[in-house]
Amino acid sequence: MGQNIILLADDDRDDREMFQEALEIINDDLLCYSAVNGDELLKQLQGLEELPDLIFLDMNMPVMSGLECLKVLKDDPRYSTIPVIMISTSSHRKEMDDSLILGAQCYFVKPNDFRDLVEILKVITANLGSGLQDALTVLNSKGCKHIHIS
């Protein structure tokens, strides 16, 4: 098995860099492509030879928001099975519910602490594939304040 591929769309450069740095610490077999909005992510996705194992979408981005991108992904049979995790600094219940209704695996509130980000991403990336939803459920049931699932 080759490298796991992750796509990340976030308009905040500092957040993208922190996210990628955390992934590099976790596993150097992870390949992470980043985009500044949903539209750019969709263009990158079309250019990939292999589908990514996971997509992280920031909720609030210019040009195309995370929710708009999520809807496009889930409506397209080529991409509908790719797991998507919505990320945001907001913990508004409506955003969480909207994300889950549209088909996101979970809603991830960005932690302020880098170590928290590394620990959560470690669990997520160690369970890519069929174990992802169970891992997210375990994180949520253990009281992880950053992970919200239905």
Rank of each mutant, 00 (worst) to 15 (best):
R93L: 07
P77D: 06
D14S: 00
A35T: 07
I87H: 12
S88E: 05
R16K: 04
D29T: 15
R13P: 06
V63I: 08
L31S: 09
N27C: 06
D14V: 01
D11C: 05
E24G: 09
E50S: 12
C69T: 10
L45W: 05
L54S: 03
I85A: 04
E21Q: 11
V84F: 08
L54T: 09
Q44H: 09
I25M: 13
R78Y: 11
I55Y: 08
I85N: 05
D39I: 09
E49Y: 13
L30A: 02
S88M: 01
D12N: 13
I87V: 09
Q46D: 08
L41T: 02
V36Q: 05
V36W: 00
E68Y: 11
V84N: 06
E40D: 03
K43R: 04
L67I: 15
M64T: 10
L67Q: 07
E17G: 12
N37D: 08
F56V: 04
G66D: 15
I82K: 05
I25K: 14
D14P: 08
Q20F: 00
L51P: 05
L54E: 08
V36F: 12
D75H: 14
V72W: 04
N60K: 14
L51T: 07
S90W: 11
L8V: 04
L8I: 08
N60M: 11
M59F: 13
M18P: 05
Q20N: 01
D14W: 04
N60R: 02
L8R: 00
M86F: 09
L45S: 04
D28C: 10
I25G: 07
S80T: 15
L57N: 06
K74F: 14
P83H: 12
L70H: 13
L31V: 02
L73M: 05
E24T: 11
V63N: 08
T89E: 00
M64G: 13
E17A: 01
R78G: 15
L42Y: 13
S90E: 13
D29H: 12
K74R: 10
A22D: 02
D29G: 13
E17M: 11
L30H: 14
V36I: 03
I26K: 12
L67A: 10
F19Y: 04
L67Y: 13
Q20V: 00
I25S: 13
L67G: 15
L57R: 09
T89D: 03
L8Q: 09
K71M: 05
N27G: 04
S34V: 03
D15Y: 01
P77F: 07
V72A: 00
C32L: 09
A9G: 04
R16W: 02
S34R: 10
E68C: 07
L45Y: 01
D53H: 04
L41A: 11
D76S: 15
N27R: 02
L41C: 07
D53L: 02
H92F: 15
T89V: 06
D39T: 07
G66Q: 10
D39W: 11
D14L: 03
M86C: 06
L67S: 12
E40W: 02
L57I: 03
T81Y: 08
P52H: 07
I82E: 12
S65T: 08
L54C: 12
P77M: 15
D75F: 11
D39R: 07
Q20I: 00
M61G: 06
C32F: 12
L45F: 09
E24H: 08
I87K: 00
Q20T: 00
A22Y: 00
Y79G: 14
R16H: 15
